[in-house]
């Protein structure tokens, strides 16, 4: 059996494929193609393939947040309901709604007048 195996290995030694004359050109073309693809996808090459969907999602969310910040008008500091009501509020009413303590006797008087008026 060993002699047969030796014979087999001998035939295996003889079984060799040779590159054809265009092999070098094909390798160079593949390299060039890969380099151009790398240039196109430069940003993605730095990210592990498994992390790419997460990275893409994070980028979409970031862009969406930036777009919202850019296009939506900024909200008033005292809240949307106050913003709607504020044109009709007197100073006294404003103090009642906000719950602030009147710091001066004039303001206190104004509140009393407002409440009496209602």
């Amino acid at each position: 059996m060993n002699s047969k195996l030796d014979e087999f290995f001998k035939t295996e030694r003889a079984r060799v494929f040779e590159p054809d004359p265009y092999f070098t050109q094909r390798v160079m073309a593949r390299l060039a193609a890969q380099i151009s693809v790398q240039r196109e996808n430069g940003i993605w090459d730095g990210v592990l393939s498994g992390a790419r969907p997460v990275f893409a999602l994070a980028m979409v969310l970031l862009l969406a947040f930036m777009a919202i910040q850019l296009f939506l008008p900024s909200m008033p500091e005292h809240g949307p309901i106050d913003a709607v009501l504020s044109p009709d509020q007197t100073d006294g009413e404003h103090l009642i709604f906000t719950g602030a303590d009147p710091s001066s006797p004039e303001l206190e008087k104004m509140i009393i007048i407002t409440e009496d008026g209602q």
Binding site: R15, V16, F17, E18, P19, F23, T24, V27, M28, L31
Partner: peptide, 19 residues
């Protein structure tokens, strides 16, 4: 230079892979 390396070493690579 890359092309020359492929030309010089492709027979060796082919022989090894053929095994």
């Amino acid at each position: 230079a890359q092309e020359e390396l492929v030309r010089q070493f492709s027979p060796m690579v082919f022989r090894l892979v053929s095994r």
